[in-house]
Computed example of a mutant assay.
Amino acid sequence: MPKSVRVLIIDDSASVRQTMTAVLESDPDIRVIGVASDPFVAARRIQEEVPDVITLDVEMPRMDGITFLRKLMAQRPVPVVMCSSLTVEGSETLMQALEAGAVDIIVKPKIGAADHLAESALRICDVVKAAAQARVGGRRPRAGMGSGADDGKKLTADAVLPPPTGRAMAKTTEMVVCVGASTGGTEALKDFLVTLPANAPGIVIVQHMPEKFTTAFARRLDGLCEVTVKEAENGDPVLRGHVLIAPGDRHIMLERQGARYHVSVKTGPLVSRHRPSVDVLFRSAARSAGGNAVGVIMTGMGDDGARGMLEMKQAGAFTIAQDEASCVVFGMPKEAIARGGVDRISPLDQIARDVLWAANR
């Protein structure tokens, strides 16, 4: 039996600490070993027992979360998940947290409609378990947790759109690149995109991230890259030199009209436990682009994208998985490889080169 993931919750709100404890301990694979109202209390707790994962509020008295995160990463690296309210203003700060070494972002749970709270709890628990597997500051990933691929309750992409017709589409001159990533993906995507030239093929990305934060993420990347990066809107065209990032809490699908591609952005059920789902994007690419597509699957826990990548390959696309050594969490690429959906396994620093080669082959 795998050991439970031990979590320390740091938040100045007693009600948030209580709610987070209840949410996390609803998962039998997670155990809350302590709570702290500020980083100074947390530091004493960590001296007593080092947790597998820390959930960390951004704004706290005496020391803010970002400052504590930087000190922690320098002295005793532990996977940290930032916990924030759902605000556009806060999302800019959280981008700094990801740069400083945070593994992922979750939104503080709010009591509301039962289905919304259930989805929120599902994401929080999944992110914490993924963080326990993360490589942080040379730390070895925690052993014992599965990929989540055997959860029979998960909806597949069938819940959003039908499977590809089965016949590969003939190649045309325009190529489109579809990318999926989760835990560790924000920094991996940055490393990938900053190396692309301004005339790179059009790219559509699913990064598992809460709503509102994808806006700040896209803006941050746009300021770093030669390609133009934006959060996708329904009907946006897929153009050379442009990158579209799926908005948090919305599925994104590639659609074709004549020789041109555009995206459809819409809500829907969680697919492979996610919204947006990589499986949904990849299946839509298999249906609409076939051999005109390149698929890339990057770091992340679970199996979202594994089915869709196999469908892309079967439809004639060239598919690439990030290698284990460069992944923060190897779950998603590992599942795609295991299903036979991957043509090439590449380290992160070679994925851009391989994408350009595949798009021009």
Results as ranks from 00 to 15, higher is better:
247 P>H: 02
249 D>H: 01
250 R>Y: 14
250 R>W: 08
252 I>K: 02
252 I>T: 04
253 M>Q: 13
257 Q>N: 15
259 A>M: 13
260 R>S: 15
262 H>L: 12
264 S>I: 12
264 S>N: 14
264 S>T: 15
265 V>Y: 08
265 V>H: 07
266 K>S: 14
266 K>Q: 14
268 G>Y: 06
269 P>C: 12
273 R>V: 01
275 R>P: 00
275 R>D: 01
276 P>Y: 07
276 P>R: 03
277 S>L: 00
277 S>C: 00
280 V>R: 09
280 V>D: 11
283 R>D: 06
284 S>H: 09
284 S>Y: 06
286 A>Q: 03
287 R>N: 15
289 A>W: 07
290 G>D: 01
292 N>D: 14
294 V>N: 12
295 G>Q: 12
296 V>K: 01
298 M>T: 06
298 M>L: 14
301 M>L: 12
302 G>M: 10
302 G>H: 09
302 G>V: 06
303 D>F: 07
305 G>Q: 11
305 G>D: 09
305 G>R: 06
305 G>P: 11
306 A>I: 08
307 R>N: 15
307 R>S: 14
310 L>D: 04
310 L>P: 01
310 L>S: 11
311 E>N: 09
312 M>G: 05
313 K>Q: 14
313 K>L: 03
316 G>H: 05
316 G>K: 08
316 G>T: 02
318 F>G: 10
319 T>I: 02
321 A>D: 12
323 D>F: 08
323 D>Y: 12
